[in-house]
Measured scan of single mutants.
Amino acid sequence: MSGNGNAAATAEENSPKMRVIRVGTRKSQLARIQTDSVVATLKASYPGLQFEIIAMSTTGDKILDTALSKIGEKSLFTKELEHALEKNEVDLVVHSLKDLPTVLPPGFTIGAICKRENPHDAVVFHPKFVGKTLETLPEKSVVGTSSLRRAAQLQRKFPHLEFRSIRGNLNTRLRKLDEQQEFSAIILATAGLQRMGWHNRVGQILHPEECMYAVGQGALGVEVRAKDQDILDLVGVLHDPETLLRCIAERAFLRHLEGGCSVPVAVHTAMKDGQLYLTGGVWSLDGSDSIQETMQATIHVPAQHEDGPEDDPQLVGITARNIPRGPQLAAQNLGISLANLLLSKGAKNILDVARQLNDAH
Rank of each mutant, 00 (worst) to 15 (best):
A249F: 01
I54C: 04
N358G: 03
L42C: 08
A320G: 14
Q229S: 03
R32C: 11
E179K: 08
V23N: 01
R325L: 15
K74G: 09
K227V: 02
H95L: 09
I110G: 00
V265S: 01
E209D: 09
V130C: 14
L134E: 04
L220V: 11
T66I: 14
L148D: 07
Q304S: 13
T78S: 08
M196A: 12
K227P: 01
G48Y: 08
T35V: 09
D273Y: 11
L238R: 04
R149M: 02
Q229L: 09
A297R: 02
A84K: 09
V316M: 01
S262L: 00
L104R: 07
L161Y: 12
M212S: 10
E258T: 03
R32Y: 14
L357S: 15
G192A: 06
E209H: 09
K43R: 11
L100S: 07
D286T: 09
N118Q: 09
N169G: 08
R22C: 12
G168M: 00
V143L: 11
P101L: 07
D99F: 02
A122W: 01
T133C: 12
Q292N: 11
L64E: 00
Q217V: 02
E135I: 11
D307K: 15
L170W: 01
E250G: 02
E89C: 08
R201E: 00
A252D: 07
G72P: 13
V215E: 08
I323G: 04
P324H: 14
V222H: 00
T66K: 02
P47K: 15
M196Y: 12
K132I: 11
G326F: 01
A331G: 15
L177T: 07
K140C: 10
V103S: 10
H120W: 13
R246V: 13
V123G: 07
S141W: 06
Q204T: 01
C114L: 10
E162T: 06
R156L: 10
T41W: 08
S344P: 14
E80Y: 03
A347R: 15
N333S: 01
G168Y: 02
T41R: 11
T279Y: 11
Q356I: 03
V90Y: 05
E310Q: 15
H256L: 09
A219E: 05
L315K: 07
G144Q: 01
M196T: 05
H95T: 14
D311G: 14
K70D: 10
P327C: 02
V124T: 06
T269A: 09
E210A: 07
S344H: 15
A191E: 01
V237F: 07
L97T: 15
G287R: 07
E306M: 04
I186L: 09
E89W: 08
G335Q: 06
T58M: 11
I336C: 00
L30S: 00
M196L: 12
D36M: 14
Q29W: 11
L338M: 13
V224H: 00
E310I: 03
R116C: 07
L276G: 05
A112G: 08
A339V: 10
V237D: 00
P47M: 02
E52G: 11
S262R: 15
Q155M: 11
D178I: 02
S45C: 15
R164N: 11
D240Y: 13
D233S: 11
D312V: 10
L343P: 05
A122T: 09
L97M: 09
Q304H: 11
T35D: 00
V235S: 01
V94F: 04
H126N: 11
E117G: 11
I21R: 06
A189P: 03
A191S: 07
Q181D: 08
L76K: 14
A55Y: 11
G107R: 09
L137Y: 04
I205K: 14
K87R: 12
P159L: 09
G197M: 02
G72W: 06
W198V: 10
Q328W: 14
F51D: 07
L220C: 09
Q180G: 10
I21F: 09
Y277V: 04
G111N: 02
E139P: 01
V38L: 08
L220H: 03
T279E: 07
A360V: 15
D311Q: 11
L220D: 04
Q180N: 15
E89M: 08
A122Y: 03
T190D: 09
P302Y: 09
E80H: 07
Q332M: 15
G280N: 01
Y213V: 02
V38Y: 02
Q29A: 12
G197V: 06
E209V: 03
V130K: 06
V235E: 05
G308Q: 15
S337G: 11
E223Y: 03
R246W: 05
E306G: 06
A354D: 15
E117K: 07
T269F: 00
G221K: 00
T133L: 09
T269M: 05
Q29S: 12
T136Q: 10
S57F: 11
V103T: 15
V23P: 00
F125M: 11
V215G: 14
I21W: 10
V124Y: 01
N118A: 14
L100F: 02
A249G: 02
T269Y: 01
N349T: 13
K345P: 00
P138L: 10
F77C: 04
A67L: 09
A303K: 14
Q296T: 06
F253H: 05
L285E: 06
P127M: 04
E310K: 08
T109A: 06
D273S: 04
Q229A: 06
V222R: 01
R167S: 08
R173A: 03
L254G: 00
V235Y: 04
D65N: 05
D178L: 10
S146K: 04
L174Y: 08
G308Y: 02
Q50E: 15
T102F: 03
L177Y: 00
I113V: 02
F51A: 08
D228W: 00
D121P: 03
D286R: 12
L357F: 14
C114T: 14
L161S: 06
K70N: 15
V142K: 10
L193N: 06
A214D: 06
L342R: 01
S28Q: 00
R321T: 10
Q181F: 10
D36R: 07
S262G: 15
A55D: 11
K176H: 09
L193E: 03
Q29D: 12
F253Y: 13
V124P: 03
Q194S: 04
P105A: 12
H207W: 14
H126M: 07
K227A: 15
G107C: 12
I336V: 06
I187G: 06
T25H: 10
T298M: 09
S96T: 01
I299M: 15
H256D: 06
G326A: 15
D240T: 06
I166S: 07
L148A: 01
G335T: 04
E209I: 01
P127L: 14
F108D: 01
A189K: 05
G111E: 03
L315V: 04
K74Y: 07
L342S: 07
G216S: 12
I54R: 09
T59G: 07
D61G: 03
R116N: 04
K115A: 07
R167N: 08
P324E: 03
D352P: 14
D178K: 04
T66W: 08
C247L: 05
S28P: 00
L85M: 10
L343S: 06
T172A: 13
L338C: 08
G260D: 15
S147P: 00
Q304V: 02
V39E: 08
R201T: 06
V222E: 01
A67N: 04
N200R: 03
I231A: 15
A320F: 03
P119L: 03
I113N: 01
V237C: 04
R225K: 03
L148K: 14
P105I: 07
L278C: 12
R26A: 04
A67K: 15
F77P: 02
E80N: 06
T319V: 02
Q296R: 13
S75Y: 00
L338I: 03
H268Q: 15
Q181C: 04
P159C: 13
N322P: 08
I110P: 01
I54M: 09
I318G: 07
E209W: 01
